[in-house]
């Protein structure tokens, strides 16, 4: 019987462990040193950080990435970046209205003449999308559609830490170098420019200079970065085909079409916080964590109440049970 119990108890455990199979090949995302304030049973979002995160999204990310599932009014929802208790209905929040109005959107309804006009957004409108459709996005980004960021937090394992690690995890400037793979040629006729070919240059990454996360793994060799592709150790993928070195010890990660975006000082925070790469990555990751699941703090606090309730009910039922069965041997 004991073995039966142990085995059956292991069912859930093993299955959960099995289905939470990690995506292979990429470095494990890490959270910022101070951790995430919204995690844990009583965690809450840091409103100032959410506001800065929105600023980073608005000024940097939103030029390529849409957030189709969010409306400007969400910014003023309870728990949101610009929530003001004075305006329980976010549609009335003047700050939210002003933020919405900064964005020109194509009206989803036609005007009297049947045409679609551009107009400033209202809080009820969804976030402005940078491209009218996926084909336009693909065409503008070398064939890769920048993913919608509405639920990216839930669409990646360890969402917030993934975004944070990816954005702040591009290798330092010093590891990149250029390599000439084919010399410039005049095509044999020095005077004829039509048969000239320019020098072919390749960007290579010296793997021995990579410092990935907190690991002290050392890699020897060169990673070749094709044009329009950027190496990131946190990107799921496979570096072996691009690696000049021992294929058994290729660096983790993969290549993505997004170049490094966060450069120190690229945004000027209105609250005076210094815009370091880590700070911006931290803020925008927290903003995306909120956007991906805005009700998560409500969920956890309601969960606490439910747990207390179920605990009380369990105790009461136990006594009821004992009392009813007290005269029956079973």
């Amino acid at each position: 019987m004991k073995a039966f119990r142990i085995l059956t108890a292991g069912l859930a455990g093993l299955m959960i462990a099995a289905s939470a199979h990690a995506a292979g090949g990429a470095a494990h995302p890490h959270e910022p040193e101070e951790g995430w304030p919204f995690e844990g049973v009583t965690g809450q979002f840091d409103q100032a950080s959410l506001q800065r995160g929105y600023q980073v999204y608005q000024e940097i990310c939103s030029s390529c990435h849409s957030m189709k599932l969010l409306s400007y009014r969400n910014l003023g929802d309870p728990g949101g970046p610009f929530y003001d208790p004075e305006y329980p209905n976010p549609n009335d929040n003047p700050f939210v209205k002003a933020i919405a109005a900064q964005n020109e959107i194509l009206s989803p309804t036609p005007n009297d003449a049947g045409d679609f006009d551009f107009r400033p957004a209202t809080p009820a409108d969804t976030f402005r999308s940078p491209y009218p459709n996926d084909n336009a996005a693909r065409a503008a980004n070398g064939g890769a559609v920048p993913p919608d960021l509405s639920v990216i937090y839930k669409a990646r394992h360890d969402g917030a830490s993934y975004v944070y690690s990816l954005l702040s995890g591009y290798p330092d400037e010093e590891v990149y170098s250029e390599r000439v793979v084919a010399e410039a040629s005049d095509g044999g006729t020095p005077d004829d420019e039509s048969d000239d070919t320019p020098a072919q240059v390749q960007t290579v990454i010296d793997a021995s200079k990579l410092h990935i996360g907190h690991g002290d793994e050392h890699y020897e060799g060169y990673l070749i970065q094709n044009p329009g592709q950027y190496y990131n150790p946190y990107m799921p993928g496979d570096t072996v085909p691009q690696f000049e070195g021992d294929p058994r010890h290729a660096p983790p990660g993969g290549f993505l079409a997004m170049p490094p975006q966060l450069i120190a000082g690229r945004v000027e925070y209105s609250d005076g916080t210094e815009a370091t790469v880590e700070q911006m990555a931290h803020d925008v990751a927290q903003f995306l964590a909120w956007a991906g699941e805005p009700k998560q703090t409500n969920r956890k606090s309601l969960g606490l109440a439910v747990m207390v309730y179920l605990g009380i009910l369990t105790i009461l039922l136990w006594f009821s049970y004992k009392r009813i069965w007290r005269n029956v041997e079973h």
Binding site: I16, A155, R156, L302
Partner: peptide
């Protein structure tokens, strides 16, 4: 439901 609502699912299903 309250503390690990997505742990039994797959992140890919939010794409």
């Amino acid at each position: 439901v309250f503390y690990a609502p997505n742990v039994l699912g797959h992140a890919d299903n939010y794409v």
